[in-house]
Design a protein around this nucleic acid. Structure first.
Length: 571
RNA sequence: CGGGGAGUGGCGCAGUGGUAGCGCACCAGCUUUGGGAGCUGGCGGUCGGGGGUUCAAAUCCCCCCUCCCCGACCA
């Protein structure tokens, strides 16, 4: 492509509303343009990158045995009413009506439609398994679209759906996708981790999020640098500290005056203690019963873990209203020896210390020497603390790290939920009917583009991995003076033609601009290899090569350039 | 949804009552040519929209729209 004809305008300044580097660079370099909050146009260069990522995804999906189809973006609301997700998604869905006032939505995802589609075609165990996918635009009216392509309201997503006869089949389908995802993100040049995660609103059991490590990520996740352990911050566990036995000679419970100190930090400072010596008592109600969740004062309660510990009970931490109703609970001064407390869930670390400082259940007072088992009775011991960097890995004991990541993929074992709700059943070899067992597998294709830029850029611009670069080579012709100018132009034209006929994708800067502009644009646009044809080099029969990512430069004889480029494209 | 900030040419910005300007970009000419060149001359804006105050509004007042940031409860 000749840059003199490319629909491209690079910007020296990024728009003021860009809030992450990927957005700033993609806009400055002319890959995308914002049309509305969370809605972007993909200009020619951007479209090429999007297609590259798409094609990697398509390759790996096809290799894994999935079949591509295309489902509608406009979906009847009726399907969403059947699955019950109409209400669940609520205002997150873009809604519209046709002229007959029939309700539709713009697809935020496609479990309903795909299930209805398979239901209409397949009904025998002989048909299964089958895995269908599409690469299609999705729509979510996010509360707060932000971070450019990372949280848009319109985004390109690959969604695959597997249908199996039984759970064993599902596990195999899931494994195929899980493995394919590794290959996809490897090929895209991303540093990532699959992490155990919660299922969120889609429902189902086993699932993994694929997190690209990035400071601008919206989700914290926990991973071990020594072993393979990785988990969503809510599902993460640490290795529990060992319990210590009480000697039985601890001093008796002793009240202490702590005026106007409803927080851990103030009390610890006042008493000259570490925050980890204080007992944090978080009040909750579970099925109407008052409970306390106990963690060390320097820790926070992981509500998801608390839910697990309460084994399905409906529970909620007390809010302001709750405290208002429970007037006997002095918020900030609660101790576990409270007469109204019906159950106490304690983190294992509570048993790793013989005595605690805790609330005295009287405003402005705390209590020293609270001994588990003596002064209060623990109903259940279960992991409750939110994991932080430096905690011990539950698998290997090494240090865990809590980092931010961009969720670029998510794989779920859905089970039979949608098949049951929407009637996708098959007949087995004995003539009995069963719901199909489903899995679903998403990749945020447009988000991946942004994630790649987040990982592959520097102060000058983007540095695309070769696998997704819009062009393999950025050929720069420097206009010289007089006869030299003509020679340079001539040599560059020939090189351009030769590279193209050798099958190399070339972006050719044939513009009549100064060298500075051309170099700056080349670095900003980020093709993996830059070839510069200038009068000086040409006189010696060489062109200069610069590897964008490393900045390494060398010179190539003009007559070996094409072979070199073709060879490096192979590797 | 609540709080804060902001909308002025394609992009970045200035302009606190007197009729709109700067840089980049764009167009023309001349010069320049290995890291975002110089000079000269141009094109381009109903100042987010509507209403109001005023002799006069980008500027003051009201309403609306859009955009950005922050905000859950750790006791």
């Amino acid at each position: 492509m000749r840059m003199s004809r490319l629909f491209l305008r690079t910007l020296r300044d990024a728009p003021g509303d860009a809030d992450v580097e990927s957005q700033r660079l993609l806009v400055r370099a002319g890959y995308i343009r914002k049309v509305a909050a969370g809605v972007y146009s993909w200009l020619p260069l951007g479209q090429r990158v999007l297609r590259k990522v798409e094609q990697i995804v398509r390759d790996e999906m096809d290799d894994a045995g999935a079949q591509e189809l295309s489902l509608p973006i406009i979906q009847p609301l009726e399907l969403w009413e059947q699955s019950g997700r109409d209400a669940l998604y609520g205002p997150l869905m873009f809604r519209l009506h046709d002229r007959k006032e029939t309700g539709f939505c713009l697809a935020p995802t496609a479990e309903e439609v795909i299930t209805a589609t398979v239901r209409g075609e397949y009904s025998s165990y002989r048909d299964l398994p089958v895995n269908l996918y599409q690469i299609q635009w999705k729509y979510r009216d996010e509360l707060r679209p932000r971070f450019g392509l990372l949280r848009g309201r319109e985004f390109l997503m690959k969604d695959a759906y597997s249908f199996d006869a039984d759970v064993e089949g599902l596990r195999e389908s899931y494994r195929l996708m899980y493995d394919a995802y590794h290959r996809v993100f490897d090929r895209c040049g991303l540093t990532f981790r699959p992490v155990q995660a919660q299922s969120g609103e889609i429902g189902g059991d086993v699932n993994h999020e694929f997190m690209a490590v990035a400071a601008v990520g919206e989700d914290d996740f926990v991973w071990c640098r020594s072993c393979n352990y990785a988990a969503n911050v809510e599902a993460a566990r640490r290795r529990d500290p060992d319990p210590v036995a009480t000697n039985g000679d601890e001093a008796a419970l002793e009240p202490v005056h702590t005026p106007d100190m409803p927080g851990i930090a103030a009390v610890a400072q006042h008493l000259g203690l570490g925050e980890d010596e204080l007992l944090k008592c978080m009040a909750f109600e579970a099925d109407g019963r008052l409970g306390l969740a106990l963690v060390p004062g320097d820790r926070e309660v992981n509500e998801y873990a608390l839910g697990t510990a309460l084994a399905g009970s409906k529970f909620a931490l007390l809010d302001e209203d709750g405290f208002a109703r429970r007037s006997s609970l002095p918020k900030g001064y609660i101790g576990p020896h409270h007469p109204d407390v019906e159950l106490i869930v304690a983190d294992p670390s509570i048993l790793a210390r013989t005595e605690w400082v805790t609330g005295a259940n009287t405003t402005d007072h705390h209590a020293l020497h609270a001994v588990p088992g003596r002064d209060f009775t623990i109903t259940t011991v279960a992991p409750l603390t939110a994991v932080v960097t430096g905690d011990a890995c539950p698998n290997c004991g090494s240090e865990l790290s809590v980092d931010r990541g961009i969720e670029v993929g998510h794989v779920f074992q859905l089970g039979t939920k949608y098949a049951e709700l929407l009637g996708a059943v098959y007949t087995d070899e004995h003539g009995a009917q069963h719901p199909m067992v489903m899995g679903c597998y998403g990749i945020g294709v447009s988000r991946v583009v942004a994630a790649i830029v987040e990982e592959h850029h520097d102060g000058h611009g983007i540095a695309w991995p070769a696998s997704v670069a819009p062009y393999a080579v950025h050929l720069v012709a420097l206009a010289g003076k007089g006869d030299a100018a003509a020679a340079v132009r001539d040599a560059a034209d020939h090189l351009y033609a030769a590279l193209r006929s050798a099958g190399v994708d070339v972006l050719y800067d044939d513009r009549d601009s100064s060298p500075g502009v051309k170099f700056a644009d080349a670095d900003l646009l980020g093709m993996p290899v830059q070839l510069t044809v200038g009068a000086k080099g040409l006189a010696r029969g060489v062109v200069e090569r610069k590897i964008r990512a490393s900045g390494v430069r060398d010179e190539l004889a003009v007559d070996v350039v094409v072979d070199q480029m073709v060879a490096s494209a192979m590797t």
